[in-house]
Each structure stands twice: as C-alpha cells, then as structure tokens.
C-alpha cells in the first residue's frame, strides 16, 4: 500500500481525518442530488468547452454582467450572464446559426427551459435559480452540443 506523502495539503489531511472518523455524514438531500444528477446525462452530446473571452469595450459594466464563451469546434456558444433579485438571466448567441428548427435548452439540476433560436441565433432565459447550468443546442441531423456545467452565483 502507498504511504502518505508529505505533499498532502491541509485540506486533504482534514478530509481524510473526517472521512475516517465518520462524524460528518453526507446529508440525505445532498446524496439525493448526486443520484438525480444522472438524469442530466446526455449520451452522444458534443462538449462545448469554456474559452477565455477578452472583455470587449463598450459592454455594460462588468459589475452587472459577465460574458462566457464555449467552443465546440463547429459551433460557439456565447452567453451574457446577468442577475436581478438574486436570480440569473442568460442571453445567448449560437454562432453560426445552426439553421431552421434548431432550439436550445438551458438546463439546471432542478429545471430545464427550452427556447427556439432566433434567425440570428439568439435566445434569452430569465429568472433562473443561481447554481449550476448547462446550455444544450439541438440542431437537425447533428448530435446536440452541450456547454460544460458552469456555476453562477449573482
């Protein structure tokens, strides 16, 4: 068996001590959420990975919104994240426009919102709960494209 390494950081040591003492059981709702996460799997989806976006000049104050970009090779998902009343608003752009009959789903662990894409490839969803979300773009004759799960807290 391997022996502990001196490179163990404090958090690892604390985790191992707590795990072995068994005095911090996982709350039932947390385990339930982990089991429920399986329903969000999307076999065959193409992953859109986050890429760094240079902050463009002239957009609204960075304190009010932020821009995220996800790249899936043939398709890019741009998101502007805003918030109001503690809820999250998303305005998105799929480029290039995937064509007629394409739509997006904005998924969170507790709800999914579907939107048709405008001819310009745009969509918007407001009032999402803060937390984890993923945007899935469905387009005809292609596998869906899904952004990596991203956590947003206003």
């Amino acid at each position: 068996m391997m022996r502990p390494s001196p490179t163990l950081d404090d958090e690892s040591l604390i985790a191992v001590l707590r795990l072995a003492s068994g005095q911090d059981p996982v709350p039932g709702h947390v385990s339930a959420a982990a089991r429920a996460a399986f329903a969000l799997r999307l076999p065959g989806a193409v992953a859109a990975r986050p890429v760094v976006v240079p902050a463009p000049a002239g957009v609204r104050s960075a304190e009010q919104s932020c821009l995220l970009r996800f790249d899936a090779g043939a398709l890019t998902v741009d998101l502007e994240v805003g918030s109001s009343d503690g809820l999250v608003d998303l305005a998105g752009q799929i480029s290039p426009w995937p064509g007629a009959g394409s739509w997006v789903e904005v998924r969170t662990p507790c709800l999914t919102e579907s939107r048709e894409l405008s001819q310009a490839g745009q969509f918007a969803v407001t009032g999402l709960p803060p937390g984890w979300f993923s945007v899935v773009c469905h387009h005809r004759d292609h596998p869906p494209v899904a952004t990596s799960w991203t956590r947003i807290r206003p």
């Binding site: 947390v30 982990a34 799997r41 999307l42 984890w132 993923s134 799960w149």
Partner: peptide
Amino acid sequence: AADAMQGAWLRLVENLH
C-alpha cells in the same frame, strides 16, 4: 459544500464516456 459537491457529480456525468 452541497453546491461544490453537485458540481463534481455533474462533471462526472458529462465525462462518463
């Protein structure tokens, strides 16, 4: 902690393959 943990499971779901 629940939020961070859910993130780890969601990442496993998206990387299962």
